[in-house]
Amino acid sequence: MSCWETIADYGLRSIGYGERLLPREGFTLCQQFTLIGSGLLWNIYFGVLALASGFMLATAVAMGKASRNPVVRKISDWFIFIFRGSPLFIQFFFAYFLFLSLKQVSPFFDMFTSAWLGALIVLFLNTAAYSGEIFYGALQSIPKGDIEAADAYGLTGWSRFKRITWPTMLRLAWPAYTNEAIFLFHSTTLVFFSGFPAWQQRGDALYYANYFADKTFNPFVPYPILAGYFILLTLVIIGLFGIMNRRLNRHLPENRRSKIKPRMNLIR
């Protein structure tokens, strides 16, 4: 079987198109590349959606933590503490079994027990907490002069937030937020190892890499392939976030712009 056929058969296997049965013997390099790459679609799906939705909540949480209202502040504090202080792995497990129990109560929660929604919610809350902390830190280090200048121009409330506070916060937080994004994509690999079932063997990149390592008892092929894919993904993230970073910094003189220094990969 040629490699093109393999790609046609397995390229979209992780989302349920193409050949139903996974290869069982005589594994070729092409099969491993194709299937692991196909699994990467899930990592991208989880990463992109969690990041996009988490971004909104993170802004709210950061504002809440910086708020003068003690109730709002406490709630934000606890939210951040709970999701940053416990392992994501345990959060996944807990959420999965929580949804299972809720399913007994109402069939509405049926879809929450599958990875595409249940795990996404956990990732969304988790990244919101981590980014919320980053944004809060940035919020605290907005130059006093910027706010004073806004006051002098008569900007208050929503327009001050929209024009001054928020863009400056983003600009200051962006390098750290880039790392958080990289982090998040890496932690999407935990999903199918933590209770959420890979329905019909539709799993993510690590799921397939692990499948091949188990079947061939040779970790030296699938894991480096996975590593290669993730390094590529990381470079893409750095590239995209770099474009945004340039945009956020475009009003500053060259030497005052904040650079993104990729610091990757600590488990959460």
């Binding site: 890496h186 932690s187 690590l206 692990n210 970790p219 996975l226 590593a227 990381t234 990969n265 488990i267």
Partner: peptide, 20 residues
């Protein structure tokens, strides 16, 4: 070498690799 790749992949990899 440990950067840029999901750590859990390292965990899964090293246990078999070291054993072998």
């Amino acid at each position: 070498i440990v950067r840029g790749v999901p750590d859990i992949a390292f965990f899964l990899f090293f246990v078999i690799a070291l054993d072998q």
